[in-house]
C-alpha cells in the first residue's frame, strides 16, 4: 500500500459524523495540519472494534497541528503544537 501523503504535506481532517469506534477526536475534525511522519499500515480500528479483521488495512500518519488552529482562544505560546495519529481515510489534501 502506497501512502497518499508524505511528510510535510498539508492536510485537512475530514469533518464528518460517524458513530462507532472512531479514533479521530472531535477537536481535530475539520482542522488543518501537516503530515509529521508516515507510521505505516494498520488494521482499521473502526472495523476491528466490531469483530471484523480490520481489512483492508489503513495507512496511518502522525499529523502536526498548531494549537492556535485547534483552539481559537489557545492560551499558550504561538509555536505550541499538538501531534496525533490520523488514518488516511480521515484526511484530505489541501
Amino acid at each position: 500500500m502506497d501512502p497518499k501523503f508524505q511528510p510535510g504535506d498539508s492536510v485537512q481532517v475530514l469533518h464528518r459524523d460517524q458513530p462507532g469506534h472512531v479514533r479521530t477526536p472531535m477537536y481535530v475534525r475539520g482542522k488543518l495540519g501537516v503530515i509529521e511522519r508516515i507510521v505505516g499500515s494498520f488494521p482499521n480500528p473502526e472495523l476491528l472494534a466490531v469483530g471484523h479483521s480490520g481489512l483492508p488495512y489503513k495507512m496511518l500518519y502522525r499529523v502536526n497541528f498548531k494549537q492556535g488552529e485547534l483552539w481559537e482562544d489557545y492560551d499558550g505560546a504561538p509555536d505550541d503544537t499538538l501531534e496525533i495519529e490520523i488514518y488516511e481515510h480521515w484526511l484530505a489534501p489541501v
Partner: peptide, 15 residues
C-alpha cells in the same frame, strides 16, 4: 518558559 515549544502527543491510535 514561553520561548520553549510545548508539544502535546495525543496517543489515540496505534503508537
Amino acid at each position: 518558559p514561553e520561548q520553549k515549544q510545548v508539544r502535546v502527543h495525543d496517543s489515540n491510535a496505534d503508537l
